[in-house]
């Protein structure tokens, strides 16, 4: 099946601001996203995981052109997103949408839920008047909110309710592809499951394609068909979810998996505790970006000098490690 979303060689660097009120030396360029490629088949979910600052949100925003990518090709629904002019891009926005991490910051505090849901309908001339009201009520019902919430302002809603409004707003234009940028990270534990179930149902009902960004590997395992692991702006491992969780090939993936706390006192596994901190993407280490923290016993001079390529190690499973054949 041809992919619905195809990303090739995506690059986004943020220029360093000058320190000291614009007089100092310019800071180093932040390589937020450095040559990222993946594809998502229609109706499937790609989970994108990695630690804070590794560039996950930047990938999500760049493929929707909410920020301009520096290089790379992004195809969504057969259209080249990067080359699109302003007007066709706005038309394409009907097919691709985004739900944000912060349910408090992503809703306009001065608008009611009704106004927020009516706006996209007006922008794309999808519906107006009574028809729009009917659609708004249906949307609210679909995301599990009482229609009476249409009158509410964001600050009158709980975190889970706000996130539902954010999802309803994204769905209002009937997109095919949704970027979910950490949609449950800010929610209470007992509310996360509600929203995850809702997202799964919507995906089945509407045949949606998801890019699901998260830092929680357990959540990603629950929802994703394929998983890509990012470290310092690069994808270090990409595989079908069952393969990745059963047999991670990159030492970073292995460490990440072992660091997730498991809510079972009997099943406390041996944690691999990585030394040091996540380096800054402004100064990525040479060679393999993971080498200063890598616990792999075979780690050698090659790791410090030669950047490993992302290559297929097992059928469908790609890893960027010189020793991917001998995983931890």
């Amino acid at each position: 099946m041809p992919a619905l979303v195809d990303v090739q060689g995506l690059v986004k660097h943020f220029p360093g601001e000058r320190a000291l009120l614009g007089l100092g030396r310019p800071r180093a360029v932040v390589r937020a996203v450095d040559d990222v490629s993946f594809a998502i088949a229609p109706g499937e979910t790609l989970g994108l995981v990695g630690e804070s600052g590794c560039g996950k949100s930047t990938v999500g925003r760049a493929i929707l052109r909410l920020i301009e990518p520096d290089a790379g090709r992004v195809t969504i629904d057969g259209q080249d997103v990067v080359a699109l002019g302003a007007r066709p891009l706005r038309a394409l926005r009907r097919r691709m949408q985004i739900v944000f991490q912060d349910p408090y910051g992503s809703l306009n505090p001065r608008m009611t839920v009704r106004q927020m849901l009516a706006e996209p309908l007006a922008i794309h001339r999808i519906a107006s008047g009574a028809d729009a009201q009917r659609r708004i009520a249906a949307l609210l019902e679909e995301v599990g909110l009482d229609p009476s919430f249409a009158q509410s302002y964001a600050h009158e809603l709980s975190g889970g309710q706000r996130q539902r409004v954010g999802i309803a707003r994204a769905l209002s234009v009937e997109p095919h592809f949704l970027v979910l940028d950490e949609p449950v990270s800010a929610l209470d534990v007992s509310i996360q499951a509600q929203v995850l179930n809702l997202l799964a149902e919507l995906q089945r009902g509407r045949r949606l394609t998801y890019l699901f960004i998260a830092h929680d590997l357990a959540v990603v395992r629950h929802i994703a068909d394929h998983v890509a692991v990012m470290y310092l702006g690069k994808i270090v491992e990409r595989a079908p979810a069952p393969a990745l969780y059963a047999g991670p090939r990159h030492p970073y993936t292995t460490s990440l998996l072992s660091a997730v706390p498991v809510p079972d006192p009997k099943a406390q596994r041996q944690r691999i505790v990585l030394a040091g901190d996540v380096p800054s993407p402004a100064h990525p280490p040479p060679g393999c970006p993971f080498h200063p923290r890598c616990p792999h016993p075979k780690k050698d001079a090659r790791c410090r000098t030669e950047p490993p390529a992302l290559r297929e190690v097992a059928p469908g499973q790609l890893a960027a490690c010189h020793f991917a054949e001998q995983p931890l």
Binding site: Q192, N197, R221, H222, A241, Y245, L257, V262, P263
Partner: peptide, 23 residues
């Protein structure tokens, strides 16, 4: 209701158990 790494994958797309309502 918390998805967990050690349980069999729920993504054979069972629903997660969820606590209804809000805090």
């Amino acid at each position: 209701s918390v998805p967990r790494l050690d349980a069999p994958p729920a993504r054979e797309h069972g629903r997660l158990h969820s606590i209804p309502g809000q805090v």
